[in-house]
């Protein structure tokens, strides 16, 4: 099918502000949005810049705004985005500083991730075998472990747009994953970090994150559980 592709571009060495560029592209309805970007880069304009790696939704490299919504470019097909003769738009993730074209600076995003102590803490002497965890206890954190840290959620959240210091759904979900891991011994300190002005209470259950998550994680549900835990631990 023939489609028009509009891309919000920015070259830090040439442009003062972002500009839109359009391309007319021949594509297949079963192509991924990422295939379209690669086609443009390889056959129309080698300077078009975006991140990519796995091309099937597991590495989290290519979260961007596609037709106005945050998605992974490799995980959506054209047939679900655009009709013959229609227009497809690509923009970088919102509320992030743009490095070049569709590449954004994720250092702030990962700083927030690091802030919640995203690692298992258990200083008891390690048993000879694995630390047992029942299948039911594993189930509590299993969905949260699907997160690929692409940033689609955090950059779709109005609280993040309003307050860049808000930890955001991705980091809070990671906190949930460890606070509720029955093997972890340090939930109190982690809870203190998320039970703070820039933490949990800036989540107003708007659900944008749930909608944006390419892994279909029910983020708000897990953050609500974290809120309950924070409150019960506090009092």
């Amino acid at each position: 099918m023939n489609i028009t592709v509009k891309i919000k571009r920015f070259d830090p060495e040439k442009d003062d502000a972002a500009r839109w560029e359009s391309y007319s592209v021949e594509a297949d309805k079963m192509d991924r949005a990422l295939d379209v970007l690669m086609d443009i880069k390889w056959h129309h304009d080698g300077s078009l810049t975006f991140r990519k790696s796995c091309a099937h939704g597991v590495c989290g490299s290519d979260a961007m705004k596609i037709n106005g919504e945050n998605k992974l470019a490799c995980s959506v097909l054209l047939q679900d985005l655009v009709k013959e003769g229609g227009t497809l738009t690509f923009e970088p993730l919102p509320a992030a500083s743009v490095i070049k074209d569709l590449v954004v600076d994720q250092s702030g995003f990962f700083e927030k991730y690091r802030a919640v102590m995203p690692w298992l803490i258990n200083d008891s002497p390690a048993p000879e075998k694995e630390r047992y965890q029942s299948a039911e206890d594993h189930e509590i954190i299993e969905e949260a472990t699907k997160c690929i840290l692409c940033g689609a959620c955090t950059h779709s959240c109005p609280s993040t747009w309003a307050d860049p210091d808000y930890l955001g759904p991705a980091a809070l979900l990671k906190a949930y994953r460890y606070v509720f891991d029955t093997r972890d011994e340090e939930s109190e300190e982690r809870l203190k970090i998320v039970d703070s002005p820039n933490g949990l209470w800036k989540c107003y259950t708007i659900f944008n994150c749930v909608q944006a998550c390419p892994k279909e994680i029910d983020i708000t549900r897990w953050l609500s559980a974290l809120k309950r835990k924070a409150v019960t631990t506090r009092f």
């Binding site: 690692w119 298992l120 258990n122 390690a126 694995e130 630390r131 047992y132 965890q133 029942s134 299948a135 206890d137 594993h138 954190i141 299993e142 472990t145 891991d181 093997r183 972890d184």
Partner: peptide
């Protein structure tokens, strides 16, 4: 022990 969340058997 480092924290990998493996799937579990009924015995954990």
């Amino acid at each position: 022990h480092y924290g990998v969340p493996f799937s579990r058997t009924n015995e954990g």
